[in-house]
Simulated assay, not measured.
Amino acid sequence: MTATFVETWRALRTTRPVGEDQIQSAAIVHDNAETPLRLAIDASGDLHLLAPTLGPPRRPVPPDYNGLRLRESRLDEQACLDLCSPAANEKMFAALCDELVEAIVIERRDPWAAAIAIVRAWQSAWRPLRQPMSRPVQIGLAGELLVLQSLWLPALGSEAVHLWSGPDRERHDFVSFRLHMEVKATTRSRHEHDISRVDQLRAPENRRLLFASIQLEESVMGAQSVCSLIDGVMDAIRHDPAAVDGFLTKLDSLDWSDEMRRSPDLVRFHIRDAQIFEVDEEFPQLPPDFTMPNGVLAIRYTISLANLPYLDVGTVREDIAQAVAP
C-alpha cells in the first residue's frame, strides 16, 4: 500500500488546511473496506498516520528522531496515536506506515505496542544524512524564493516552478524562452553583490536578462525565513500536484530538510529592499569579449547597483508573462 499512501498524501496536499491546528485526512482502505485508521496532512505540510487506541501508551514512546514523531492525539473525539513525519521523507514514511497498518489491521496487534516497536526498529533509517543548510545557502535560497513568490508565480501561476532553475545549477536562476533572471540576495546595507562566473551577467542570444537584487536584514525576531517562504510557495501551488512534486524535488537538490524548521541554524530576517534591473550596456559587468587569462581558473568580483534605474514590479510581471506566451 506504500504507493497508495503516497498518492493519498499528495491528493490531500492539494486541499491542505490553513488553520494551525487543522488537518485534512482520508480513511485507509483494506480489502475494499474502510478501516478506522486515517492518513492526514497538516497546515505545515507534515504527514500523519492516525490510529484509534483505548488510551495512552503503557510504555514510553521513542524520542523524536530527525522529524519522525510519535504522539498521543485525538481522532473524532477518540484517543489515538499520531505518527508524523516531514514531507521530505514521504516514501520512507509510507513504507513505515505500511508496516504499522499491517500490524494493526491484519495482525491485530495493540496499536501503541506495534507503533513503539516498529518506530524503534526504523529509527536508524531516520539517521540525519545532511548537515544543516549553511547561512549563505539560506540567504541565496531566500532571495530566489522571494522572487518566485512575488514575480514569477503571480505572472505565470504554478508553471513558474518549472522555470526556477537555480537549484539545477544553471547560469541563471530563472530561465524562459525569451527572458532570463539572475537573483542575488545580500545582508549588506547597499545593493552590492559578488559575481563568481564570467558568464553570469550574459544572456544567450535573443534573450533578455534581468537582475533581481534582494536586501535582507538578519534578526532573531525576523518575520521571514526559508521555512516561511517555502510555505508561501506551497500555498500558492498546492492545487497543482506536478508543481508541488517539482518544487519539493528542487528543494531536495539543495539539501533542504524540514528539520531546518527546528534547527538553531535557521536564519530569520526582514526584507529591507528589492529592486529589479535590466542587464544592458549600462549595467556593471565584464566586457563582452573578456576571456580568462591562461592559468586563471576562477574569478570573483563585486558590483554596485547604486544610482542605476530599476524596473517597475508590475511591468516585470507583464514581461515575464509575455516571455513565455506562444
Rank of each mutant, 00 (worst) to 15 (best):
T4I: 10
T4G: 00
F5G: 01
E7H: 13
E7W: 04
W9T: 11
R13S: 12
P17K: 08
V18G: 06
E20C: 08
I23R: 15
I28L: 11
V29R: 01
H30A: 10
A33T: 15
E34T: 00
T35K: 02
R38F: 05
L39Y: 12
A40S: 03
A40M: 03
I41S: 02
S44P: 05
D46F: 13
L47V: 05
L47I: 11
H48R: 08
T53E: 02
P56G: 11
P57S: 06
D64Q: 14
Y65W: 05
R71H: 09
A87M: 05
E90S: 09
E90C: 10
I116Y: 14
V119Y: 04
R130T: 09
R135E: 13
R135T: 13
V137S: 07
L141I: 10
A142F: 13
G143P: 07
G143F: 06
E144M: 04
E144S: 03
L145V: 15
W152A: 03
A160F: 11
A160P: 07
A160S: 14
A160G: 13
V161P: 01
S165N: 13
P167E: 04
D168C: 10
F174H: 05
V175L: 05
M181L: 12
E182L: 03
K184W: 08
R188Y: 13
I195C: 03
R197Q: 09
Q200S: 03
L201Y: 04
R202C: 00
A203M: 00
A212Q: 11
I214P: 11
Q215S: 14
E217A: 06
V220F: 12
M221L: 13
A223K: 12
A223F: 10
A223H: 15
S228E: 10
D231M: 11
D231G: 14
D231E: 12
R238T: 00
R238Q: 12
A242K: 05
G246V: 06
K250Q: 12
D252T: 08
S253N: 11
S257V: 07
P264F: 11
P264R: 05
R268S: 12
F269D: 00
I271K: 04
D273G: 11
A274P: 13
D280N: 11
E282R: 07
F283M: 06
P284F: 04
T291E: 08
V296G: 03
L297T: 13
S304V: 09
A306Y: 07
D312I: 13
D312N: 14
G314A: 05
E318C: 04
I320E: 03
A323C: 02
P326L: 02
